[in-house]
Design a protein around this nucleic acid. Structure first.
Length: 958
RNA sequence: AGGUCUGUAGCUCAGGUGGUUAGAGCGCACGCCUGAUAAGCGUGAGGUCGGCAGUUCAAGUCUGCCCAGACCUACCA
């Protein structure tokens, strides 16, 4: 307290007082609030309170049930929560049912680490049990962290894609999509183990060194002269494109040769052989050396695009003759030269033998050019099948692993197409169980066709016409992605997934004629026992004698299908939800993911989109805008922020940041965020401290009795509320936080609160001047606690608890504040006070100058002489004697404009500041002639005497 | 490599249809107050509007190119 003696009159003041602490101590106290929410069943109470009201359905996209939550999770959940809470305050019934995506490979990998692989250490069924347990643990762990973010939802009843009922509904939805004619059976290359006789998942493949035979093979151009022209020269010599491969056995399945459009190729003339070869320019030297040819010359060069088909072209400019596969009429089979981005000039020849049945890249590139193989030439055991052509070539029945491979080499040699053959050791995929090399082999896979029943067209139409994409570029994004996508391959060769519960005829591959009924039967079983019901099922149980003719499909569904059908398994199943949902809200990556899988499955099953609006947010990145990564060490973990700064700080950050692009987080940003939070908090605290002793039931001042300044701030607040609600409804939270902040700083901090302090502290406790201001503060707090509730969920509740009067158990059980008193003052309205603020600003400038001169210190030690225009004078006189309270000075004298004082930024205003020579009142600190006029209180001014023991001073304006 | 998006003071953000010295809040510096005090009030200093070129009498705002970053394409949720 320094050496100053505390005034004996201090006890006669009404100083601010509140239990509401200056510092939030959020990390410690937020969990206490969460416990209380849980204890009173807040989420359920809100449901009951909003039962029957208009609904707002934000449907939760399921995060994957693996790993601790990161900033991206936090952003997503908090944004959802802000929307849910603001809609709840709108009076809507806005349930939030969180969910998790539980099947799939990442969980399989985690479980494998723990218990080993299926078939080695345990059965598939046991493995699935472990997966289920693991996923449940992950859900629990993530749920705890999500709740800690103060996200309100039905956490005790979330949806899990591994719930038996959910699994059954996935199968039912698949059935519906099949009924609508979208299912299609096709071929696609997968990892295939000839020993297992089955496809392997990526996780079942391990890489080991393998010795292969690498060969360089000539593919002769059908029209060599034309080729020479493409290189800009004339020649009639035979010409070949040379490919290099380590899998000779795939050559019978060749359908094309790929070159890179931008790589340069050389046309090389072999002097001795009198023929031309096309090789990537960078590889000419190596290749010819490999072939033992040193007598050659490069005739010309050209980019691949000059002699190969581009995706936008309808036909290939050049065809090659397959070295040994004939067509039906005995002529060599012709295959096109195409361009592919997968081609490199790092090794080989720069031209890639392309067999869509045996390579992933090959399949993709052939798809692009509409090239399809008619038949799979290799059987389940890895042997060539017996087609007439292969029989004639003596390939039929030979194993691709050895004899078949050698026979291909022989054929090439016979046809003089083999330039080189050598041993080649490389890393090659092997079956994890048999430790044998695998092959790429196209197998039957299930697809959802984009075209056969018009799915793509309808989905595009829905996206275009019936969904609002926000930001608007989301529409172009998803349309472009869907437009380019191939048929959706929904088959996976996995253990932990929902089965494609179908029976396919052993010979024809046709689905069983009773498929719809069978699917429902299976679904009922899965509903009881989970997906194991299918895997354990003996086909004869359902098919009877038919079983011998049908294969039970054991592929699992792509997990995107699982999460894609939440519209059915969740929105249609839960009474509190509905479909289509009002809003899906996910990261921008989900245009390719969930937004799309949901749209496609919904359109396929029901013919319409599952959401009315798709809102997107960006990714959390570091202060420099770079993605977070372990190696950069720039990861911001929600948990750490939570434990250090608190959830409300993190939530304010989410709200304050423009989520339409990348969202930057760093220590500095969070520090600024915490600063902003403290400002809002302290403003509320000051208001709470100043309604100390105010009982709204008995002390509230009626609208028409309020002092004009108080009426103004109430009217201002009411208008601000409309603005804030509009921001919430537009999901523009950064505008909201800025508006809130500005209100606290400008209208309140720098003006209203500063001005009313004198009245609050010095007037009689129960006087009209004080009660009027308290009435205003009370209304503002009632409104403010709701304004901030969707964002600052903890702090809002804290204010709520500290407000006087009967109220609900949580601010979230209320709606936007509607009990502002009707106030209207035409003469002293908003325009008037804005004018006063301009004057105050000019006065501040003058006071600051006087302070610099050491003329004054505190503004109450100053007196003002204002030289003003007639118009301004009329305005200022409206406040009479109380102008000094607004300007926070001891005295203000108004004069007609004259050449006195200093000019200000305002035209009609000149100001003279002087230090008051009058006595300072010990109690109110104003300087006044009246100090000492009462002998009982020699250190007080007259109005303080009135306030201490008289009837109290009168205030009419401020 | 391609597609989409983003780039305004140290930080977070405003800046309809191009038009005076580019704004706000925070932070920072300085000052005041000590009856909001690990607070509050005031004043002030900070910007090549990512860069370059162009259209125009005039561009942060239109066009092109470039740079940096993010997301998506290699079936991975």
């Amino acid at each position: 307290m320094n050496d100053k003696v505390e005034s004996q009159y201090k006890s006669t003041l009404n100083l601010p007082d509140t239990e509401f602490p200056m510092r939030g101590n959020l990390a410690k106290r937020e969990p206490e609030l969460l416990a209380r929410w849980e204890q009173i069943g807040l989420y359920q109470q809100i449901r009951e309170a909003r039962a029957g009201r208009d609904r707002f359905i934000l449907h939760d996209g399921p995060p994957y049930a693996n790993g601790t939550i990161h900033a991206g999770h936090a952003v997503n959940k908090v944004l959802k929560d802000i929307i849910i809470k603001s809609q709840t305050l709108n009076g809507k019934d806005a349930p939030y049912v969180p969910g998790w995506d539980c099947h799939g490979l990442p969980i399989e990998l985690k479980v494998e680490e723990k218990v080993g692989k299926v078939g080695e250490n345990l059965s598939a069924s046991e493995f699935r049990k472990h997966c289920r347990e693991y996923a449940a643990e992950q859900v629990d762990s993530q749920r705890t962290d999500f709740k800690r973010l103060m996200v309100l939802g039905d956490w005790e009843n979330p949806y899990l894609t591994m719930d038996f009922k959910f699994e059954a509904d996935i199968i039912r939805t698949l059935g519906r999509i099949i009924d609508n004619g979208h299912l299609h059976k096709g071929f696609k290359p997968v990892n295939w183990c000839s020993d297992c006789g089955s496809a392997l998942a990526e996780a079942e493949v391990e890489y080991q060194d393998k010795k292969s035979i690498a060969i360089d093979v000539k593919f002769a151009f059908a029209e060599p002269a034309k080729l020479a022209q493409a290189f800009g020269i004339e020649s009639t010599l035979p010409a070949s494109l040379v490919i290099w491969t380590t899998t000779p056995w795939t050559l019978p399945a060749n359908e094309a040769v790929s070159v890179h459009p931008q790589i340069e190729y050389s046309l090389v003339q072999l002097t001795e052989q009198q023929e031309l070869l096309v090789l990537a320019s960078d590889l000419v030297k190596d290749a010819l050396q490999r072939y033992g040819i040193d007598d050659y010359k490069v005739l010309a060069t050209a980019n691949g695009a000059a002699f190969a088909q581009l995706p936008e072209q309808n036909e290939a400019p050049f065809m090659l003759l397959h070295p040994f596969i004939p067509t039906a009429d005995g002529q060599p089979k012709a295959v096109p030269v195409i361009t592919g981005e997968h081609v490199t000039a790092d090794s080989g020849t720069g031209a890639v033998h392309t067999a869509p049945m045996h390579g992933a890249d090959d399949y993709v590139v052939c798809n692009q050019f509409g090239i399809e193989s008619e038949q799979m030439l290799v059987d389940d055991a890895g042997n060539f099948v017996a087609t007439p052509v292969l029989e004639a070539l003596e390939l039929a029945g030979l194993s691709t692993a050895d004899k078949g491979n050698f026979r291909v080499l022989g054929l090439l040699a016979e046809k003089n197409a083999l330039l080189k053959k050598e041993k080649f050791e490389h890393s090659y995929p092997h079956c994890w169980r048999h430790k044998t090399p695998i092959i790429f082999r196209a197998t039957p896979q299930w697809f959802i066709s984009m075209h056969q029943a018009g799915l793509l067209d309808k989905a595009m139409q829905e996206a275009d016409e019936n969904v609002s994409w926000r930001p608007s570029w989301g529409k172009a994004r998803i349309e472009s992605m869907m437009g380019n996508r191939p048929d959706w391959c929904i088959s996976r060769q996995r253990t932990w997934g929902v089965p494609i519960a179908l029976f396919a005829h052993k010979q024809t591959g046709e689905l069983h004629p009773q498929t719809p009924e069978l699917i429902e039967k299976v679904a009922l079983m899965v509903e009881e026992q989970g997906i194991d019901a299918w895997f354990d099922l003996d086909a004869s149980t359902l098919l009877g004698d038919d079983a011998e003719h049908y294969n039970k499909v054991t592929d699992t569904l792509d997990v995107w299908f699982d999460s894609g059908v939440t519209h059915t398994a969740v929105c249609l199943q839960r009474d509190e939800l509905q479909m289509p949902a009002d809003l899906y809200l996910e990261g921008s990556d989900q245009h390719r993911g969930w937004f799309q899988s949901s749209l496609l499955t919904s359109v396929a099953a029901y013919g319409h989109a599952p959401y009315k609006t798709a809102l997107t947010h960006g990714f959390a990145v570091d202060g420099q805008g770079r993605k977070m990564s372990k190696s950069l060490g720039n990861i911001v973990e929600p948990k750490a922020v939570m434990n250090k700064l608190g959830g409300d700080i993190l939530r304010w950050w989410v709200a304050d940041t423009d989520y339409s692009g990348e969202m930057t987080v760093s220590d500095e940003i969070l520090k600024r965020t915490a600063d902003a939070y403290r400002r809002v908090r302290n403003t509320c605290r000051f208001m709470l401290a100043n309604i100390n002793g105010f009982n709204p039931a008995t002390d509230m001042v009626a609208g028409d009795e309020l002092l004009p300044l108080d009426a103004w701030i109430i009217a201002y607040s009411r208008e601000l509320q409309d603005t804030l609600i509009a921001y919430y409804n537009a999901y523009d939270f950064k505008a909201l936080t800025k508006a809130l902040m500005n209100f606290c700083v400008s209208e309140l901090g720098a003006f209203y609160l500063d001005v009313i302090k004198d009245r609050q502290y010095t007037c009689k406790a129960d006087s009209l001047p004080r009660r009027s201001a308290q009435t205003a503060l009370y209304h503002i707090l009632e409104a403010m606690s709701r304004w901030i509730a969707p964002v600052l969920s903890f702090t809002a509740e804290e204010i709520w608890e500290n407000l006087p009067g009967e109220r609900t158990a949580s601010v979230m059980l209320s709606e936007w504040y509607q009990d502002f008193p009707a106030v209207s003052d035409e003469t002293l309205g908003d325009a008037y006070w804005r004018r006063i603020l301009e004057v105050k600003q000019a006065v501040n400038g003058a006071l600051e100058k006087a302070r610099g001169d050491k003329t004054i210190g505190a503004s109450l030690s100053a007196e003002l002489d204002l030289y003003v225009s007639d118009a301004l004078k009329t305005e200022l006189e409206k406040l009479g004697d109380e102008l000094r309270f607004v300007l926070l000075t001891s005295e203000v004298r108004l004069h007609a404009m004259a050449d006195e004082g200093d000019a200000t930024e305002l035209d009609g205003l000149r100001i003279q500041v002087s230090a008051s020579a009058k006595e300072k009142c010990e109690r109110c600190w104003h300087h006044s002639d009246s100090v000492g006029s009462d002998s009982q209180h020699p250190t007080l001014c007259q109005r303080c005497v009135d306030n201490v023991e008289g009837d109290g001073e009168l205030r009419r304006y401020a």
